[in-house]
Write a protein that binds this DNA or RNA. Structure first.
Lengths: 120, 120
DNA sequence: CGGGATCCTCTGGGATACTG
DNA sequence: CAGTATCCCAGAGGATCCCG
């Protein structure tokens, strides 16, 4: 991650702090940067769901992408994957506490977008 | 933009609304998705700055990228570009009201990241 | 000084097919 | 059902050179 910031002594303390910590912002944005991640998290916000269920909710996403995005969310600790040893196999996905927290962030973004005249 | 959502009647009204409007979230994220955009906006939050100044503040970004990102921010109405007919040429960049608003969003993200144990 | 023009690379996303 | 394995492509990002 090479996009560090250069602190400028002329800036206010708060802003200096912000700038020295911008990696945090980048890292946070990276968590939700995936094309289907926000939607997945919204669908999971109402409770745990199965893989096929999520796939059906995202008809424009391929199986491959649903799986990949879920893997990344899981790797980042936002989503929990629970496998049940049954036949046929069953896998349930749900938001971790941290995932819920990120979803709160998304909700905040949503409310902002609502106040703007964004292209539908 | 094909990543639409399928509304699910079982969901609460608020969540249905969220899901039917997720394009707004995507659109908002697109505004700040660029690699250097958050940093540029933070540097502009303390007042207008010149091109070279911004470039110096982002040593890892090429001139080309600084210019490109600024063009996009300008196109999205987040940054204003003012050219002064002088020699040598001078160009000042500043946040528009809408840009300030987006920066508020970034600040919110920043505060979230501060509460987390994100990898520095 | 503040860019634009070109070319190149790399990766996020997608299509398709196969499997425990 | 819930994936993995391959192959492929567009577009974001970068290097380099040139210009008014």
């Amino acid at each position: 991650m090479e996009n560090q910031c250069i602190p400028e002594s002329q800036l206010l303390a708060q802003q200096e702090k912000l700038q020295n910590n911008c990696p945090g912002i980048t890292a946070t944005l990276d968590l939700i940067k995936g094309k289907w991640k926000p939607l997945l998290m919204f669908y999971l916000s109402s409770g745990s769901r199965r893989f096929g269920e999520l796939h059906r909710l995202l008809p424009n996403a391929t199986q491959h992408m649903v799986a990949t995005q879920l893997r990344e969310l899981e790797h980042d600790g936002l989503v929990e994957r629970r496998v049940y040893a049954e036949v046929p196999p069953r896998v349930e996905y749900s938001l971790t506490p941290r995932g819920e927290s990120v979803r709160g962030l998304l909700e905040h973004i949503y409310h902002w977008s609502e106040q703007q005249n964004l292209p539908a």
